[in-house]
Amino acid sequence: MGGVEQALKEALTIDGALGVALVDLSSGMALGTLGHAADLDLTLAAAGSTDLVRATRRANELQNRPGEATEDILTTLTHQYHLIRPLTGPGGEGLFLYLVLDRARSNLALARHHVRRIETGLAV
């Protein structure tokens, strides 16, 4: 099991990764951020993504689909993917991993797989 810093460093090894944050859903505060894109404010993006996670959860509740959980949420921009992974493992409830990928340099399917693997090893 790894800590927050180790999980963030591992996420940045994903091809095309520009930045990553671990975010508390109740407050919108980033518990940790790591990235190298000059034009990317991870703290601000993480806070804004909190609203997206909450809205997705509300929509799922309204549809009343027992046993269905959100695995990830994807926002596709012209040059980037923003991947949100709500955490479900022990100690991860109420948190989500927020990953920004360079669209030209990343493989979305592999990134999703890698993020799932990071989640299983994360101890908060």
Rank of each mutant, 00 (worst) to 15 (best):
R112V: 14
E119G: 06
G16D: 10
A17Q: 03
A123E: 11
E71C: 02
D72G: 05
L108A: 12
H114R: 15
R116L: 10
P66S: 12
L31A: 12
G94R: 10
D41A: 09
D102K: 08
Q63V: 06
L12E: 07
D102I: 01
R57E: 15
D41N: 15
K9N: 11
T50W: 00
A59F: 09
G121F: 02
R112C: 10
G16I: 03
G91L: 03
M29W: 11
R116Q: 14
S27A: 11
T78L: 08
A123H: 14
L77D: 02
L42M: 15
R117F: 00
P90C: 04
V53R: 03
A21L: 05
F96L: 12
I14N: 04
A11P: 02
L77V: 03
L77T: 11
R54H: 07
A17D: 08
P90T: 13
A123Y: 06
D72P: 05
V124R: 11
V4C: 02
T76M: 05
E10Q: 15
E71K: 11
S26W: 01
N60T: 05
G28I: 07
D24F: 00
A59Y: 06
I14E: 03
R65W: 01
G3I: 04
K9W: 00
A21H: 06
A38F: 03
Q6G: 09
V115E: 02
L52M: 13
A104Y: 07
H114F: 15
D72H: 14
L62H: 10
A59G: 04
H113W: 08
G67P: 07
G3L: 04
H114N: 13
E68A: 11
T13C: 02
A69P: 00
S49A: 10
L12H: 01
A45R: 12
D72S: 14
L42R: 03
E68I: 12
L122N: 02
L122Y: 05
A123M: 13
A21C: 04
L8D: 05
S49N: 15
L34D: 07
E68T: 11
E119A: 15
I73V: 15
L18M: 12
A46P: 02
L22M: 09
A11G: 11
V23T: 12
D51P: 00
L8C: 09
V4Q: 09
D72Y: 13
G35F: 06
L25Y: 01
A46W: 02
Q6L: 09
S106F: 06
E93C: 01
R116Y: 08
R105V: 00
D15E: 14
T13N: 07
H113Y: 14
G92R: 04
T88H: 13
R112I: 13
S106E: 09
G16T: 05
L62F: 08
I14Y: 04
D102M: 01
R103S: 04
V115R: 01
T76R: 12
R105I: 00
T33F: 05
T75Y: 12
V100L: 10
R105T: 02
E5I: 06
T13E: 10
V4S: 04
S106P: 09
E119P: 05
G91I: 01
R105W: 00
A37D: 15
T43E: 15
G2F: 13
G91F: 10
R58Q: 10
H113S: 15
H36F: 05
Q6D: 11
E10F: 00
L83I: 03
E119K: 07
L31I: 06
A46E: 01
P66E: 14
R54G: 01
L52Q: 07
G92F: 05
T50H: 01
L99D: 07
T120V: 13
